[in-house]
Amino acid sequence: MTFPYTGWVLMPSYKPKPEQFVKSFRATHHVTDKGKYVHLSEIYVSMTQAINAGTKHLSEQQAALDKKQANINKRRAALEKAAGEAKP
């Protein structure tokens, strides 16, 4: 890869933003013109790729939340069953 180049990153708000990368840092990071270190897995060639990656990440987060909610529902049902059995 030749420097400088422009790549896309997702901000913490998931808004895609173009960044100018000026050099490599080790084999895993590139450095922006503002001195920020970005992992190679978080740099995308286009805005579309950044959006697709963000959408995939949100889907994975939603799946994890759904699984946690299912476990909470099972535990709540167990507690309600135990509470019903404990009443005289």
Rank of each mutant, 00 (worst) to 15 (best):
H39E: 07
F3K: 08
V9Y: 00
Q20R: 08
Q69A: 10
L40T: 09
V9F: 01
V45F: 09
K15F: 00
P4F: 09
V31L: 13
L79G: 14
N73C: 05
A53C: 00
P16E: 04
D66F: 08
S41F: 02
F3Q: 09
Y5S: 10
L58V: 07
Y44G: 03
H30N: 09
G84N: 15
E60N: 07
Q61A: 11
K56P: 00
D66R: 09
Q69C: 06
K67L: 09
G35M: 09
H29W: 09
E85C: 11
T55M: 07
K81F: 14
F21V: 03
I72K: 08
A83L: 15
S41N: 08
V38S: 04
A64W: 13
P88Q: 08
L65Y: 14
W8H: 06
A82G: 13
K87T: 12
T55W: 05
S13K: 00
W8C: 03
L40M: 10
V31R: 05
A50H: 02
G84K: 15
R76T: 10
K81A: 15
Y5V: 07
K81D: 15
K74F: 04
K15S: 04
P16F: 01
H57W: 12
E80K: 12
I43K: 00
S24H: 07
V22A: 05
V9A: 03
G84Q: 15
G35I: 07
E85D: 15
K68H: 13
S46G: 11
P4L: 06
V22D: 02
P4V: 07
H29K: 09
E19R: 05
L58K: 11
G7Y: 01
T55S: 06
A53I: 03
P88M: 05
A86Y: 10
L10Q: 03
M47Y: 12
N71I: 09
G54Q: 01
S41H: 05
N52D: 06
G7P: 00
K68M: 14
K36I: 14
K74I: 04
K36P: 05
V31H: 06
A78I: 12
A50S: 05
G84P: 09
P12S: 03
T55F: 05
A82K: 14
A63E: 12
A86P: 04
K87L: 13
I43M: 05
N71T: 12
T48G: 11
M1P: 06
P12G: 00
L40H: 06
K68E: 15
V38P: 01
V22M: 03
E42H: 10
P12I: 02
S46L: 08
V22K: 02
T6E: 14
H30P: 02
L79M: 15
V45D: 11
E42R: 04
T48E: 15
T6W: 07
W8Q: 00
R26A: 10
Q62V: 09
H39W: 05
K36Q: 15
E19S: 03
E42Y: 06
A70T: 11
